[in-house]
Design a protein around this nucleic acid. Structure first.
Lengths: 335, 335
DNA sequence: AACAGATGGCTACGATTAAGGATGTGGCAA
DNA sequence: TTGCCACATCCTTAATCGTAGCCATCTGTT
C-alpha cells in the first residue's frame, strides 16, 4: 500500500503539504493540490484509516451491538439509528456480542474502536457497559435499565403493553388466558409478564402455571410451546404471546392441530413486526415504536457526543393494534 | 484514557516491558507481569485498538457488507460467515453500502479498516471492489460474477432454479404462468428469469408481457405486483415469485381478493427463507444453500488470508422444496 | 567469565497539525 | 528603474497519537 509519504515524494512536496492537500485544506495552492491529487491517483493511494483515527482520536463511527448478527432483527429500529448516523456524517457498523468477554462487541467497546454505541443485546453484561461508557463515550441501552456515566436507557413500556393486551382479551370475554413467555432473563419479557399479571389480578382471574410456557422469544420456541400447551388437554380461550415471532410459530402449531384462529382460540402478540399484517389471520398485537426508539437512540448519542445535556432515561409508549386474531366472546356465555 | 505509558510508569517498568506483559509474552517474569496487570487494572487500562492495528498492520476483523443494515437479512448466510470468523479468532462486523461512494462500506474497504470482506450488496460497484481487493485483501462477492486479483465469486445456480421451478409448475399442468420479478439490475433476478424463460420456451409456452411484473424483491412489492396482476382481468393459473418475500406479499394480496391458494391459483417462491414453513399454505420454493454459501465464503476468505490457492469461482446448486402452495392440475383438462 | 533470562531504550507504523521558514507581491522612496 | 521593506501566501519541519518489537543492556546463576 502506498502511504502519504509516497504521494508526497511523487508530487515533490512535503508530507504535510500532501496531507493538507488531501484533506481539502485551503492552505495549499490549487496547483499544488492538483499535483498531489494526481500523484495519489497514480499510486492508487488511500488513507490508512487507523493512522487517521489514532491521530485524530476519533473514529466517526458508532456501533450497533446486537446479540447475534444472524438473529431476528428489529429492522425498523436499525433504520432509525442508521438514518441519524448517516445524517450526522457518521458511519454505523453492526457487531455481535456472541462470545462473551471475547466478543467483537466487547472488544470494540473496550478498545474504543468506535465513538459510541447503541446496545440491544441481552447477552452484554451491565459491567462491561458501565466500564466502557463514560463522558466521552456514550452508550445507549435499549433493552434494560442501567445507570452510570455516559449511559442512557431507552425502554418501551412493556408493563403497560402487557396490561393492555391482557385487558383487551378480558374485555373480549376471555377468562382462560395463557402466557407464552420469552427468556426468563429478558427484561422486556419480565415487563410484559408483569403487565399480564397485573391485569389478571385486577380482573380476579387466576393464572394457571401450566399455561405459562417459555418460547424463548423465537419462532420455533413459540411453535413448541404451543404444541406443549395443546398436549395438556384443556385449552385456554386466548393466548398472549410475549412477542410476534412466537405467535407466528404458535399459529403454525395451532393450524397443524386443526385449531382455528380466532374461532377456536384467540391470540395476541407483541412488537408489531412488519410481518404481522402478512400472516393469516392478521395478528392483533402491541405496537412498539421501533423506528422512533432507534431514531431517538441515534439522536441522543450525537447529543452526548456534542456535549449536550440529556436525560438518562426514556420510556416510550405502546399501542394496541387491533386485527383479526382475537374473537369477541363477551356475548357468548359459555362453551 | 490511560495509555500503556501510564501503566508502565505506575508499575515502575519500561514501556516495552509493559507491552510484553500485557500481550502475554513470556519474556517477562511472572512477578513483573503481575505488577503490570495490577497497574493496568488500577488505571482501568485498555489497549487502544487503532494504535495496535496500525502497528500490527492487521485488524483481525472482516466485514460483511450488506446493501442495507435494516433490510431483509439472509440470516443463515450470516450465520455461516459468523461461525467461520469466530472459529478463526476473527471479529466480524456488518456495515451498509448505503450512500454510494461515501458509504461506510466503501470507506472500510478503501481505508483498509478490515482484513477482508464478504459482499452481498447490489449497490456496491464492481469498480470499488476491484480497486480495493488485492493479494493481501480478499473480497468474496456473493451476488455477482466478478474477477480480479483477490476477488472470488460465489453464486447459486439461479438459472437452474428458475428452470426447475417453472418445469415443476408445467409438470403440474400449468400453462399460464406469471413471473413476478426482482429489480431489473439484480444479477440473481436475471438468472432466475433466464431459467424461467428457458423452461417456458422448451415447453412451447408463451410468456405474457402483462404477467411479468416487478416487485423489487420486497414483500410489499410482491403485494402490489400481485394486486396489479389481479386487476388485469385474466389470472394465470400459477405465479412464480422471484423470491419468497414477494410471495408472502402476494399471498396477502390474493387472500384479500378472495383468491384461494392453491385451489384457485398456485404459487412458488425462491430462496426458502425460514418463514416459508410458517405461513399458510406452506410455500413451495427453491432452496438456496444459504448457510453453506456463507460458510464457504468465510472459509475461502481465511484461506486467502493464509495465502492458500483457491478457485476464483463457485456455483452452488439449488433444490426444489415441495410444500402445499401448488395444485396439481394435470388431471384437470380445462377450466 | 560465559550464559541465559529479564528488562529497558528506541524507532517505526501512517497520519494530523501547530509553528516557523521560504517565497513572491506590491508600495514607496531614492 | 532600482532597492528595500512589510506582508500575505504557500510550504516544510517536527512533534505527536499509542502500540509493537528489535536490539542492547543489565542481573544473577553456573
Amino acid at each position: 500500500m502506498a502511504t502519504i509519504k509516497d504521494v508526497a515524494k511523487l508530487a515533490g512536496v512535503a508530507l504535510s503539504t500532501a496531507s493538507y492537500a488531501l484533506s481539502g485544506n485551503n492552505k495549499v495552492s490549487a496547483k499544488t493540490r492538483e499535483k498531489v491529487l494526481e500523484a495519489a491517483r497514480q499510486l492508487n493511494y488511500h488513507k490508512n484509516g487507523f493512522a487517521m483515527d489514532l491521530k485524530r482520536s476519533r473514529t466517526n463511527t458508532i456501533a450497533l451491538i446486537l446479540a447475534d448478527l444472524s438473529g431476528p432483527f428489529y429492522s425498523e429500529l436499525i433504520r432509525g439509528v442508521q438514518e441519524v448516523a448517516l445524517s450526522n456524517g457518521y458511519d454505523l457498523i453492526a457487531c455481535s456480542s456472541i462470545g462473551g468477554g471475547d466478543s467483537t462487541a466487547v472488544r470494540f467497546l473496550r478498545e474504543k474502536r468506535v465513538d459510541g454505541a447503541v446496545v440491544l443485546a441481552y447477552n452484554m453484561s451491565d459491567e462491561v457497559m458501565q466500564a466502557s461508557a463514560g463522558a466521552g463515550f456514550p452508550i445507549i441501552a435499549m433493552d434494560r435499565i442501567i445507570s452510570g456515566e455516559g449511559l442512557i436507557s431507552i425502554i418501551v413500556d412493556g408493563e403497560s403493553g402487557g396490561y393492555e393486551a391482557t385487558r383487551y382479551l378480558m374485555d373480549k370475554g376471555h377468562r382462560k388466558i395463557a402466557y407464552i413467555s420469552g427468556p426468563s432473563n429478558s427484561f422486556a419479557n419480565s415487563l410484559r409478564y408483569q403487565g399480564f399479571q397485573r391485569a389478571m389480578q385486577e380482573g380476579g382471574l387466576e393464572e394457571q402455571a401450566k399455561w405459562r410456557i417459555s418460547g424463548g422469544f423465537v419462532r420455533d420456541g413459540g411453535y413448541k410451546a404451543t404444541k406443549m400447551m395443546m398436549m395438556q388437554g384443556e385449552l385456554p380461550t386466548a393466548v398472549f404471546y410475549g412477542n410476534d415471532e412466537m405467535a407466528i410459530g404458535g399459529l403454525k402449531a395451532l393450524e397443524e392441530g386443526g385449531i382455528r384462529v380466532p374461532e377456536d382460540i384467540s391470540i395476541i402478540g407483541f412488537d408489531d413486526i412488519q410481518l404481522t399484517e402478512f400472516i393469516q389471520p392478521p395478528l392483533t398485537t402491541i405496537r412498539q415504536p421501533m423506528y422512533e426508539s432507534g431514531s431517538l437512540a441515534g439522536h441522543l448519542l450525537f447529543q452526548m457526543l456534542n456535549g449536550e445535556e440529556v436525560d438518562m432515561f426514556y420510556k416510550l409508549n405502546v399501542k394496541l393494534i387491533e386485527c383479526q386474531s382475537v374473537k369477541d366472546r363477551s356475548k357468548v356465555q359459555s362453551e
